[in-house]
Design a protein around this nucleic acid. Structure first.
Length: 745
DNA sequence: ATAGGGTTAG
């Protein structure tokens, strides 16, 4: 025994002599007899596994361990102490010849709240299926095993346990019933949970809380609130857990949130750190920074969560300066704080800032990136098209052995797809094992779709079903998108028809927009229009945008005028509508209408979103806007462009005039406008700074114009280059004078 | 001698 340990020997010397082993002497009331034993008291005071192990040794020496009661105390100490050692507890348990129900319960309980709740059920099964001695579970056993089933989301086991409990006439035990409410609610069976709830003879506050939590987290915020009111109507006082449950309900608007807050004050449950944090979070999510700040400022106690919640509030609402100041004044900046900044930038369309903060984190070395950080960074890379950086993150994940969660796999697939390397995306997908969730599959389908591999996308969907993964609404958006890009009209129609009856997914506006796009693109404008008429919900701008895009493709002026009118009713600021309509006019030679439209745009003070293209060279993303001359190699770029056009003209290139107005930002330089489109600048820069073996990967924020599309095709042939161009809509892969979209875009 | 509900940030 180590000298530094607790003076157990000393303590023991002061205690009465050990009782004889129970084999020779069994006291009439053994539990009472041993319960005051000093060694047992020492167990309850001990919080250190090493101390407990010494006590174990001691008990073996003195024979105390042979007493079932004493052994049980020791097992539960190992099983339940804050510094628990479940393996040790289990081993101890196996050495007890006749464990009693208390001992069984202790182990079952410990495992039910552990990382391996399945053990809890296994031990339970062992207990009830022994041949030598029948030991029945008691009313304490059930809450433990039901909790284990709830953690495992195992309804089947849960139902069996429910049946057993009823058979053993525990059907009115409020503890067991409350556990069952929790079980059914966590398995998503809110109706079953509610049925149990209604059958509780005397509901206590935990019954109400369990049911309210079930509704709140099961997307039934209204039911949760109603139950909360009903509870108070029945004279039960809500406690802190009640309020936390109510606050976790999604879709709380500010009015209801404030009402909940006032309720907390009225019931005198204020002041707890947890509750205050939840309230700050609620105010942030409801978009009321003012209320969040007010509460944050007067909170008597704040922890890192309070600070981070507030930081998220500032960052997500675009108050970057305040966010930064708040960040600097935080007591410590852990990785969650960095994540709050990075993800806020990434999610509000500022991917470059997100990457800058990530770089700062790397340089400062103040916190270690975790999977949340990397997911945000990968998403920022995807937005910018920064594949070198994205690949670096991929290597980082491998090098630091960061667990490849489905979330990370999804982000990697998305990043490689959006940066133009579909093969890498497929590689990640194929090597990601059998635990692909619906997001991983959907990301892969989306990647195949944006690169124009419609058939492969549908095949991927077939495999997804073979893998028994249930598709969601996003899966179908991606699938329909794939059909649309590839012109798989019949396949798209079939999928759309099957959504509701076969897959139980109600088509949303996005799905209708995809269908309108698909039909319109294929020239079925009438069918697209009648589909819009049958939509059960009001069409959003995207639907008319799709129709307008189809009109541009097929030069239908009449429908285009209607579609753009409707589109501008919904979004008067939508410059895309003006651009597309002017393209339609230009295509049919109505130049007066084009001029008119331009004047109208000027009158409403609408400035077109500037076209912007970027190209990555050796890990640095170079951005170009139309007519850009700010680049350090601007002179070389323009010289290259002149050379390119000479060469292309010699092989028969003629500028496509109808595209002049695709980008209205070149108003002042109309004549040269086509030559100065940002994607052409980016391609020219790629030509002079990348080797022939490197594909030129250009990312554009808007749709590519017809002339640039044509030019890219010609360059790919004349210069024997691979050019990848991502526009707002899809990828174009230019090679040997052809484009992967087969001019269907 | 043992039980049930909430852990809020990314």
């Amino acid at each position: 025994m180590a000298a530094t340990s607790l003076p157990i020997t000393l303590h023991h010397r002061l205690s009465p002599p050990p009782p004889p082993p129970p084999t020779t002497y069994i006291p009439p009331n053994k539990d009472r007899y041993f319960s005051n034993h000093p060694t047992l008291q020492l167990i309850t005071q001990s919080s250190n596994p090493n101390q407990l192990k010494q006590i174990h040794a001691q008990m073996l020496r003195t024979g105390l361990f042979h007493d079932p009661f004493s052994a049980s105390i020791l097992v539960s100490a190992f099983a339940l102490a804050p510094l628990q050692d479940l393996d040790y507890a289990h081993q101890l348990f196996d050495q007890i010849p006749q464990p009693n129900i208390y001992t069984w319960n202790a182990l079952i309980r410990a495992y039910s709240s552990s990382q391996a709740p399945i053990q809890s059920l296994l031990i339970f099964t062992r207990m009830i299926s022994r041949f030598d001695e029948v030991l029945l579970p008691n009313k304490f056993t059930f809450p433990f095993v039901i909790k284990a089933a709830a953690k495992l989301l195992d309804m089947k086991v849960g139902k069996v346990l429910h049946g057993m409990a009823v058979k053993m006439s525990f059907a009115s035990d409020v503890f067991i019933l409350n556990s069952l409410i929790h079980l059914y609610a966590s398995c998503g069976c809110l109706d079953s949970a509610y049925r149990v709830f209604l059958n509780v003879p005397v509901r206590d506050v935990v019954s109400w809380n369990s049911m309210i939590t079930g509704f709140a987290q099961g997307d039934r915020a209204d039911d949760a609130l109603n139950l909360f009111l009903e509870m108070q109507g029945e004279g039960l006082r809500p406690d802190e857990v009640t309020m936390l449950s109510v606050l976790t309900a999604k879709k709380l608007d500010l009015k209801v949130g404030k009402w909940v807050h006032s309720n907390i004050v009225r019931n005198g449950i204020t002041g707890s750190l947890n509750l205050n944090n939840a309230l700050v979070d609620m105010y942030v999510k409801c978009g009321s920074l003012k209320d969040a700040e007010k509460l944050f400022d007067k909170m008597p106690e704040k922890d890192i969560v309070s600070w981070t919640t507030m930081l998220v509030g500032y960052a997500k609402s675009g108050n970057y300066i305040t966010a930064r100041r708040h960040f600097e004044s935080m007591p410590r900046q852990d990785i969650a704080a960095w994540n709050a900044l990075i993800s806020a930038y990434e999610q509000t369309g500022n991917p470059k800032e997100a990457l800058a903060v990530f770089n700062e984190l790397q340089m400062s070395n103040k916190a270690k990136p975790d999977s949340v950080t990397l997911v945000s960074v990968l998403s920022a890379c995807a937005q910018v098209g920064a594949m070198d950086m994205g690949g670096w993150v991929h290597v980082y994940i491998k090098k630091h052995k960061i667990k490849l969660t489905c979330h990370l796999v999804t982000s990697l697939i998305d990043m490689y797809s959006k940066c133009g390397d579909l093969n890498k995306a497929l590689e990640v997908f194929d090597s990601s094992g059998d635990n692909k969730d619906v997001f991983v599959w959907s990301a892969m389908i989306s990647g195949l779709a944006m690169h124009g591999h419609g058939r492969d996308a549908i095949e991927c969907f077939t495999k997804m079903q073979e893998a028994k993964i249930k598709p969601n609404g996003v899966t179908f958006t991606n699938l329909l998108c794939a059909c649309s890009h590839t012109g798989l009209l019949q396949e798209g129609r079939d999928l759309f028809k099957k959504m509701e009856p076969v897959y139980g997914i109600t088509p949303g506006v996005k799905h209708y927009a995809c269908m309108v796009d698909m039909l319109g693109r294929a020239g079925h404008l009438e069918e697209a229009i009648s589909l819009i008429k049958t939509m059960p919900m009001p069409p959003l701008a995207s639907v008319y945008g799709a129709l307008l895009g189809a009109c541009k493709l097929h030069g239908n002026v009449a429908v285009a005028e209607q579609a753009s009118a409707r589109l501008l009713e919904l979004e008067p600021w939508n410059h895309g509508a003006y651009v597309l309509l002017s393209n339609v006019y230009a295509k049919s030679g109505k130049w007066d209408k084009v001029a008119n439209l331009r004047k109208r745009m000027k009158d409403v003070g609408l400035k077109k979103e500037p076209g912007c293209s970027s190209v990555e060279v050796n890990g640095i993303v170079h951005e170009f806007i139309v007519g850009d001359n700010t680049h350090s190699q601007s002179k070389l770029i323009y010289e290259k462009l002149i050379e390119v056009f000479e060469k292309l003209k010699s092989i028969g290139y003629e500028p496509n005039r109808s595209q002049v107005l695709q980008c209205v930002e070149e108003e002042d330089v109309q004549d040269h406008a086509l030559h100065l489109h940002s994607e052409k600048l980016a391609i020219a820069f790629g030509l002079i700074s990348l080797t022939k073996s490197q594909p030129i990967r250009v990312m554009k924020n808007l749709r590519v114009c017809g002339d640039c599309h044509n030019v890219a095709k010609l360059i790919s042939k004349a210069y024997d280059r691979e050019i990848l161009l991502r526009d707002r809509y899809r990828f174009h892969h230019f090679h040997a004078g052809e484009c992967s979209c087969k001019d269907y875009w």
